[in-house]
Design a protein around this nucleic acid. Structure first.
Lengths: 226, 226
DNA sequence: AAAGGAGCGTACCGTACGTTACGGTACGGC
DNA sequence: GCCGTACCGTAACGTACGGTACGCTCCTTT
């Protein structure tokens, strides 16, 4: 069992137990504000040699990439049931989705990872930004789209572009929270606040895109395109 | 005229002509993706000595801080007229505001500065994050608040918390644009797209918070607080 | 039991960069 | 005319860190 040990080449190989421990060490360093992630610090914290790090991950960039992907792999799941969709079920699904997203977003890990990716996005070669993007907003959209489409099919949502509807939902949920957290603002919302915000965002979204309630404003979609 | 030349101590002193040129050089380096901002590169580009940089700005951090403040000082202005407010005027003001904000947000300078501030926000001492925050979302809120309050006073906007309304407007305008740009996504919107988005955000905002049209949904405000 | 590899610890190298020091020039005041 | 000051250009220093090399231990395989 020698092959499939180096993560560096392609992100295809799944990390071994030991490698996952190393990646967790890197994550811990990334999150800890009193520490800085260097190859030396990762090796020390993971009780491994730097040589092993380079053997497994190629270089610093490979280690960071593997770390981001490892964290992304952890977050998955959280499936939304969408059978027998009525307005209440749709609202519940959106609400749960928003709350999950806010929880992830305001977590120290997410903040640290986004900072890392943003920091190296200004340089040329930066897969990190793309990876975080892929596992952040894009993944959120991919998971939310079937829900919105189901709502559309059930006549609960009126919009001519699911993508636009998703981005609006994103804005209503996140607002200025993420940029503030990234800039160092201390305002990590508590659980009750998250639930309240998720509810507000959902209700606002349904007020804009919901159909069949008689008080929505879906006519905005047509006007917005001229 | 020896005093008031060092910017390092407090941000009180206004930079001299020559110092402004240095700060512009720093900004240029910051924006250029092919360059990296180092003390040496700033000195070379500004045709000044590093000794002068340290004399004026104390250290690298002081230079960065002065640079961010200098850029912030440039952006000001863009006053919104708010006399004789009716629904059309309010919508126009919001729309212009949103368009201005999108233009700033998607500019290379804003992206570079936010990246810089976010990058160093993970460390302890980071006034940069606070400064950018102060000149970003907070400044936007400060400028928008009187407009919203005027709209409220004129019975055009129904909300029990101007701050919440502002943050919602922020979300509707920015959505996922800023985080995508920061993460390196290429999608800088053109002028026509900015105008369209500003219009959409404004209409959506008025649909949620607008009063007196008979099709708004301001009742959400009460529900959202339980 | 011997051999070999995987991996730990550590010393080491090269480089980038922040910071300091120093020599040289222009200029205003005595 | 001389000194102090401000400034430029550049060399030099110290350090942090990415990357490499090497010796040692332990564990697996035969």
């Amino acid at each position: 069992m020698q092959a499939a040990q180096t993560i560096a080449q392609e992100g295809l190989e799944a990390p071994t137990e030991r490698q996952r421990a190393v990646l967790d060490a890197a994550l811990a360093l990334l999150v800890d504000p009193n520490e800085t992630l260097t190859m030396t610090s990762v090796a020390r914290r993971a009780s491994c040699s730097k040589e092993t790090l380079y053997k497994w991950f190629g270089d610093r960039d490979g280690l960071l990439t593997a770390t981001v992907q490892w964290q992304a792999a952890k977050v998955r799941a959280v499936q939304l049931p969408q059978a027998g969709l009525d307005r209440t079920a749709l609202a519940g699904a959106l609400e749960q989705f928003a709350a999950d997203w806010l929880r992830v977003l305001s977590g120290t890990t997410s903040v640290a990872l986004n900072r890392l990716a943003i920091g190296q996005a200004q340089t040329l070669r930066g897969d990190l930004g793309r990876i975080v993007l892929e596992n952040g907003p894009v993944a959120m959209g991919r998971r939310l789209r079937p829900v919105l489409e189901a709502g559309q099919a059930a006549g609960l949502i009126a919009c001519d572009d699911v993508e636009t509807a998703f981005r609006t939902f994103f804005g209503l949920v996140v607002r200025d929270l993420q940029i503030r957290l990234l800039l160092g603002d201390r305002l990590a919302p508590g659980e009750t606040e998250i639930r309240r915000e998720a509810m507000r965002a959902t209700q606002q979204f349904l007020a804009l895109y919901g159909a069949g309630t008689g008080q929505n404003a879906h006519h905005l979609q047509q006007e917005g395109t001229r």
